[in-house]
């Protein structure tokens, strides 16, 4: 593991973000962005009260976004807890929507490695296409980078064909320097995606940490030619925010990343807001949430 020792200046990042967020996305470019964002959503439910029925409702929603717009893309995936993977897999049969499972004692990661490996194995066997693991932040903050890297590598090994998303939980890493280091650790340990947050810690995804993670992905690509995906998750509920993330993506990583294979939004209510915007763009009429199904 060779870390690049890349420094981050937080104010510089903030200014870059502000600059990117000042981009004005109108007309066709907005339509395209909304469709693109929709196709990148990992429709998520991660509650203690989740049940098979709840997951089935969500899966139906994922494949029937809006009756009047049959040409809309699907969301990219459904994201659930490991015990609900089977249900989701079954409910999504015949669609191209992927099943993602959070694992490794999500959201805290406070468990021993063997339990984590078991959990991941089971989720993969149950049909999860993607595994969203959390890193051990306590170990990371105490400087035990080897432990964190080792854990990711071991999880990666048992993922089999499933893609591995590594959640950094940036809200607990505190500094952007830490976000950069954690990104490099995850990338070098075999992550297919790096993901900002569990959604259980505030702040969750922010444009600043996402930009830092994009830069880590870009630097890895510049050196190795390898493409690693990115998933900001938590706190992105409005289409305007989603478009701002896409602007950041477009100007930092470019064409190769502007698709669901390499970029996802982890979100629960974003899909409806995008749908409302799409209807508004098509009809010119501002919409009400009452007309969009809550699942």
């Amino acid at each position: 593991m060779i870390l690049s020792n890349t420094k981050i200046d937080a104010i510089g990042i903030k200014e870059r973000v502000a600059r990117l967020q000042s981009r004005s996305i109108k007309a066709t470019s907005k339509q395209q962005a909304l469709n693109l964002a929709l196709s990148m959503i990992d429709l998520t439910t991660l509650e203690g009260r989740d049940s098979p029925n709840k997951v089935r409702q969500l899966c139906y929603k994922a494949t029937h976004l809006h009756e009047n717009f049959p040409d809309l893309p699907n969301v990219a995936a459904i994201c659930v807890y490991a015990p609900l993977v089977k249900t989701a897999r079954h409910a999504l049969q015949g669609s191209n929507v992927k099943v993602a499972s959070v694992a490794t004692a999500f959201p805290s990661g406070m468990s021993d490695i063997d339990s984590k490996l078991d959990e991941v194995k089971r989720a993969a066997e149950d049909g999860a296409n993607e595994i969203d693991m959390v890193i051990s932040r306590g170990r990371f903050l105490s400087g035990d980078y080897n432990y964190v890297a080792d854990e990711i590598q071991k999880i990666k090994e048992v993922c089999g064909s499933a893609h591995l998303k590594v959640i950094l939980e940036t809200g607990e890493l505190v500094t952007l320097d830490n976000v950069r280091i954690a990104s490099e650790l995850a990338i070098q340990s075999g992550a297919d995606f790096i993901k900002t947050s569990t959604g259980k810690v505030q702040p969750a995804a922010t444009p600043e940490v996402t930009l830092v993670m994009m830069q880590a992905i870009r630097d890895h690509y510049i050196k190795s030619g390898k493409l690693v995906g990115l998933k900001p998750a938590g706190g992105i509920s409005k289409s305007k925010q989603a478009i701002q993330y896409l602007v950041m993506l477009r100007e930092t990583l470019g064409q190769s990343w502007l698709n669901p294979k390499l970029f996802r939004f982890g979100a629960s209510s974003l899909a409806n807001d995008i749908l409302m915007q799409i209807v508004k763009q098509n009809t010119g009429i501002y919409q009400s949430t009452d007309y969009f199904s809550l699942d």
Binding site: T28, S29, L36, R218, R250, E251, G254, Q255, S256, L258
Partner: peptide, 10 residues
């Protein structure tokens, strides 16, 4: 990087 993207700003 390929920064000439299909998605363009109007």
């Amino acid at each position: 990087l390929n920064l000439q993207t299909d998605w363009q700003y109007d």
